[in-house]
Structure formats: C-alpha cells, structure tokens
Simulated assay, not measured.
Amino acid sequence: MRALKLHEVSLADRLADRAVDALIDEADLSPKPALVDRRGNGAHTDLHLGLMHASALSLWPMFKEMAEAALEIGEIGLPLREALGRIGREGEQAMLITTNGVNTHRGAIWALGLLTAAAALDPGAVTLNAARLALLNDRHAPQTLSHGALVAQRYGARGAREEAQLGFPSVTQRGLPQLHKSRQQNAGEQNARLDALLAIMTELADTCVLYRAGYAGLTTLQQGAQA
C-alpha cells in the first residue's frame, strides 16, 4: 500500500526549486576568481554570501509563477514573453527589497527565467525554446539601457540578451562539455563545476567585467582562465 501523499509537488514547484538551487550552488562554489564564494566577497564591496542566498530564495515565487505562466499559455509567443517580462520585473522588485537595493541576480532573472519557462513548455528543447522567447520583444519593457547593454554597444560584445537569443552557446558549447569531461575524469564534483566555469570564462566577453575593468581587464580574465 502506497503512503498517502499529503501534498503533491507541482512541476512549477520543482522547476522553481531547481532554479533557486542553481543560484545557491553557484554562490557556494569555491574558489571562484573575483566572485562571491565561501571565502569572501571577491571583487564586490556590496555583496556577501548570505545576501546571495537571501536573494536567491526571494526569487522562488517568481520562478514558480513563470513556470505556471508557460504551462497555462502553452506556447511561445508574445503573450508568454510579455507575461514573463511582467513577472520578472515584479521578481526584481522583490529581490531589491530583500537586498536593500543591491542588484544581486538581475541577470539570473533574465537567463533562468527564460530557461524555467522553456523547461515547463518542453524539457527536451530548453535552450531552443528559451532562445525563441528571447527573440521576442516585450512591448511593456522599460526603455532603459542596463550597464551590460551599454558596454555591449561600446565594445561590440555579446550581452546577456544576445547570449540567450543564440541559445546560451557559452554554456552548451563550452561549460557543459567541460563539466561532463571533468566528471568522466573523476575530477570531483566541485572541481568539475570550477572547470566548467573557467571554460566559459576563457572566451565569454563578460559585460560585467568590461564595465568594471574595460577591455584590458577582460583580456586578463580570459588569459588567466585559460592558464
């Protein structure tokens, strides 16, 4: 006789759990060059590990709502894209209230929000559907340029929007292959994840780094990751 299930966990719940777990795992991964980790704040003066955890947890309702919107609407199009934009902006406000105005996860709201909705639509075509969503313009989005967008224009770098529109090639072509390779070589899970991060850093034109340190800083980062 099966045990009585007092609460059935929905797909949206599970996807929200996965998204938040990913953010917390990323923050905890150590040692990460110049980034917040278990050792300290890295190059950030306004961030710390506890704040990253609190921020990630504050986004759980947003990720769940995004998954629910994808399940309810059921197809890629402007209605879903604009629903995700609205939910993302509301999630960003919840994040900023939690962090007292510090931008901890704005980029993650964009990237993981798309991926969460795409996974709800079809777990077998996550990056493809995320890219299709990213290619749609949200008519209600504020007409302001983020630091990343400004830097992308200045340096001709591919920003977060373009990365998503291409189906996250830095992850699928560099990060994940290196992760699988390191796991197969019995590197240990922490080292495999660090290897994947460094593989991405060798080529990614990180707009945050460009904003903070310019092209010289980005070159130093890429060369250091390669080494």
Rank of each mutant, 00 (worst) to 15 (best):
M62I: 09
E8S: 12
R39K: 05
T127E: 13
A70W: 02
F168D: 06
D21F: 10
D17I: 05
A67T: 04
L96R: 04
R18S: 08
L145N: 02
T104M: 10
R161F: 05
A125V: 07
A130M: 03
H44N: 12
L71K: 14
P79M: 05
P169F: 09
L23A: 05
L35D: 10
G175C: 14
F168G: 08
Q185Y: 03
T202Y: 01
R193H: 02
E163T: 15
R132G: 04
L115N: 12
L145K: 01
D13V: 10
A225P: 13
E203Y: 01
A164Y: 03
D21Q: 13
Q190T: 12
P31G: 02
N129Y: 11
L210R: 04
A27Q: 13
A213I: 02
L136G: 06
P142H: 04
A227S: 14
S170G: 15
Q178R: 09
P79R: 01
L179N: 06
A134S: 07
P142L: 01
T220L: 07
A152F: 05
R161A: 07
A3G: 13
N137K: 12
A199G: 04
G224F: 11
D206G: 01
A134H: 04
S30K: 10
R212G: 04
R39P: 08
A141M: 12
H147S: 05
P33H: 11
A67L: 00
T144Q: 08
I109N: 11
E162C: 04
A141H: 11
L166Y: 03
A213C: 02
I109S: 07
G77M: 01
T220D: 11
C208T: 11
V102Y: 00
N103G: 04
A157S: 12
A94N: 11
A12W: 09
L136W: 10
M95V: 08
R183V: 00
H105K: 10
L11N: 01
D13E: 15
L150F: 07
A69N: 03
A225I: 06
K181I: 09
R139F: 02
A67E: 09
